[in-house]
Design a protein around this nucleic acid. Structure first.
Lengths: 186, 186
DNA sequence: GAAGTTTGCCAACAACTGTTGGCATCGACG
DNA sequence: CGTCGATGCCAACAGTTGTTGGCAAACTTC
């Protein structure tokens, strides 16, 4: 479809540096100049290829999460499964840096907060519908998210040593039952 | 001890405006000019009385949490008790704005991250020591914090509707057992 | 009432931000 | 070779930031 351009390497270098800078510094502290320096090009190139800082951010954050659906899962172990998948997203490039960026900027930028609310109501809540009482699916989805995002916050943002030290299997063993209990409530 | 100064009203107005601005906008977006405008004084007054923006932030965030200790609590219901106390801190002025500010800036500022790690290891972990096996107290403390901070994140920062809609009693009913389980592990 | 300190505002600086326009250079194509 | 668009860099603008020095008014102290 889209033909390869001679500047593709530059574009990719910019996007790569942007992802790292946004993840490390957040939206505001990551300056176009610092991103351009990392990519070893001129700041004006960023503007030419991505229009604005907002455009660059949108491009850096736009990825497919391709979440496997939980429809085929065993209802008895879906908590552990969901926890494991959540963990995998946060520890596998390039989604790890992107999710870290989203969480960090969400707490500082109302627009990103709105986006996360939308993701929550449009993707998380429906996935929870099949388990337990459909009437309070939103509440159960909220509880699940509170535990999983709390895990991400303490493990990847605050990096509390005992939470970082947990192996993925240990995380699933500890957090999975909690998620399971929230999912399958009344 | 310290005698009252004629400028005490101004100082208090600045601190009050600063708390609100920091809570609403975070450290970077809250400018000295906007805080001064809220307090209806000149920006240079902020500098005179608090030295710098960092000094103002430190003053705005410096409060006594006076956490009641859990020593006298019934080990069987300490999870619910801790959850209720945590909730009270986040919903009662002026700690509500201060905690919101700390959480928001923590994810964007490494210095505040370090401060939260310190609070965690020096105040949370010891409080957990009495329950369950002392050897893995840090891990259990980490799990407890992951759930409680996840609650704060979804309820007060992201404001996910179903989590906001929960009454304090409902929060204790849902989250309390999870905290209890983490606290009293093996 | 005079001297001195405190309180407050105004104006400005220096640094940094995102962003833009102009100009050189390179590659493809006739 | 000559033309032309794509690519890249340099320099600069305009706005905002934290911060500072100077000066007027108000209060305190004698």
């Amino acid at each position: 479809m889209t033909e390869p351009r001679r500047s593709d390497a530059t574009r990719a270098a910019i996007l790569d540096a942007a992802r790292r800078r946004f993840a490390a510094d957040g939206f505001r502290r990551a300056t176009i100049r610092s991103i351009a320096a990392d990519a070893d090009i001129d700041p004006s190139m960023v503007m030419r290829y991505y229009g604005s800082k907002d455009g660059l951010f949108a491009a850096a954050v736009d990825v497919e999460l391709d979440l496997p659906d939980l429809a085929a899962a065993d209802p008895g172990t879906v908590g552990a499964l969901l926890t494991r998948q959540f963990l995998a997203l946060w520890e596998r490039p390039p989604t790890d840096e992107i999710l870290l960026t989203l969480l960090r900027t969400a707490v500082a930028d109302d627009a990103v907060v709105e986006k996360m609310r939308e993701v929550f109501s449009r993707q998380v809540t429906p996935a929870v519908l099949r388990f337990g009482d459909p009437a309070d699916a939103p509440r159960r989805a909220g509880l699940v998210v509170s535990q999983l995002l709390g895990l991400a916050l303490t493990r990847y943002v605050l990096r509390l040593p005992p939470v970082v030290a947990l192996t993925p299997d240990e995380v699933v063993d500890e957090i999975g039952p909690t998620v399971q209990r929230y999912l399958a409530r009344s």
